[in-house]
Computed example of a mutant assay.
Amino acid sequence: MHNTLIHFIRDVFNTKGSIPLHAPFFGGDEKSNLVETIDSTFVSSVGAYVNAFESELADYCQAPYSVAVVNGTAALQTALYLAGVRTNDIVITQSLTFVATCNAIHWLGGEAAFVDVSMETLGMCPISLVAFLERHCEYDNGQCIYKRTQQVVKAVVPMHTFGHPADIEALASICETWGIALVEDAAESLGSTFKGKSLGTFGQYGALSFNGNKIITTGGGGAILCKNEIAYKKIKHFTTTAKVPHRFEFFHDEVACNFRMPNLNAALGCAQLAQLNNFIANKRELAAVYEDFFSEAPYTFVKEPEGCVSNYWLNAIICKDENQRNSLLTSSNDAGIMLRPVWTPMHLLPMYAKSIQGPLDNTEWLAKRLVNLPSSVRG
């Protein structure tokens, strides 16, 4: 069966050469935008394309505001900081995620606590979140308190895995009940929707990524979506070293970061964003081809949750067991086709192994069986 799958993927991508997991596609105004930016000399964090990219991104997501930053990790770290996460605070997230989710929590001095994912969405499971809160926490004077240590549970960070929407409406309701900030890790899900609403707009903040392997790329980059002008101004201030505006003086009024996206990256982003709807249509066509193939194969194809529209950033299958997964990964990579396992769960990494955690049965089951397929936009 492995050889049949390898030949099928080669046919789908129409090549005998190596096939990456996800490569960027440049078919618009990328080159002309970059040349224009270079000619203008405004290649750093000040320039017309930064403002244009932020405005166009907010319009696309139907979010009140967006702020472009240097990468997705910086976006998430900034969002958590603005949500109030500080030293010793707890942030509940999922263990089945990319390590940047936990690293953003760590560098603010926070502590990650892990709950399980849903088998239907691959994102945070609302049932697991409620079970964790009811067993380990109490609501006291407007705050959620972890009873064993009296730490404040300051935020919940679900991740929309591979672009598939988590049950974000239920998660938002739980966070509201418990007085916890909801910060969406929407790094992989630009263009995906839950009941017609863009991911990244349900929480207090949403963090996006435009790394080279995302559905659109700015080379390196990210963005924070937010709901009001006060938050927008705070994010802008924090990500520009908290410099107080002045014609010539340098005065900074708080400890902050230099996270602003350069104009050169934003120029690339504007050209990419203009093609996003076409990219999504292309990727959904690829997902349909995969789904049809795997209907007759001994693997389970991962489909978008009911009532949602996924960008299918990365297509995925579930193998029957770990041995089948390992055999498939070995044979495909030997053939020059980049299939990849899901990330090692965070609670199995040495730096997060002692983190607070609830039962993670689905996480560990999926980690032994899930495989990502080549998912690039096809020209």
Rank of each mutant, 00 (worst) to 15 (best):
D39T: 12
S44Q: 06
A79S: 15
N51G: 15
Q62R: 13
Y81A: 15
T41D: 12
V50A: 11
L57G: 07
V70A: 07
D59A: 10
D39I: 09
G72S: 07
G47D: 10
V35P: 00
Q77D: 02
G72N: 06
A74D: 08
L57S: 08
T41K: 15
L34Y: 08
L34F: 11
V69R: 10
S45N: 05
E36G: 10
Q77N: 04
L82K: 11
T73S: 13
Y60F: 15
A48H: 15
S40F: 12
S44W: 00
K31T: 02
E30C: 01
F42C: 12
D59I: 07
G47A: 12
Y60E: 01
L82E: 12
A83W: 02
V70K: 06
L80K: 05
E54S: 10
A63P: 02
D59M: 07
V50W: 02
S55Y: 07
S44K: 09
A74S: 14
L82G: 05
V70N: 01
E54K: 08
F53L: 14
Y65F: 13
Q77M: 12
E36Y: 08
A83E: 00
K31A: 14
D39H: 14
S32A: 15
C61D: 08
E54I: 06
C61N: 07
Y49L: 01
E36L: 14
N33T: 00
T73A: 15
G47L: 11
Y49M: 10
Q62P: 09
A74P: 03
K31M: 13
Y49K: 11
E30R: 04
Y65D: 03
L57D: 05
L76A: 10
V46P: 00
I38P: 00
N51F: 06
S44D: 12
C61R: 03
V43K: 06
A63M: 09
S45Q: 00
N51W: 00
L80C: 04
T78D: 09
D59E: 09
C61A: 15
T41G: 12
A52N: 08
Y60I: 13
A58E: 01
T37S: 13
D39A: 11
C61W: 01
V67M: 02
E54A: 01
F53S: 11
Y60S: 05
V67P: 02
N33M: 06
D59Q: 10
V46A: 14
T41Y: 12
Y65I: 09
S45A: 11
L34H: 04
Y60H: 05
V69I: 14
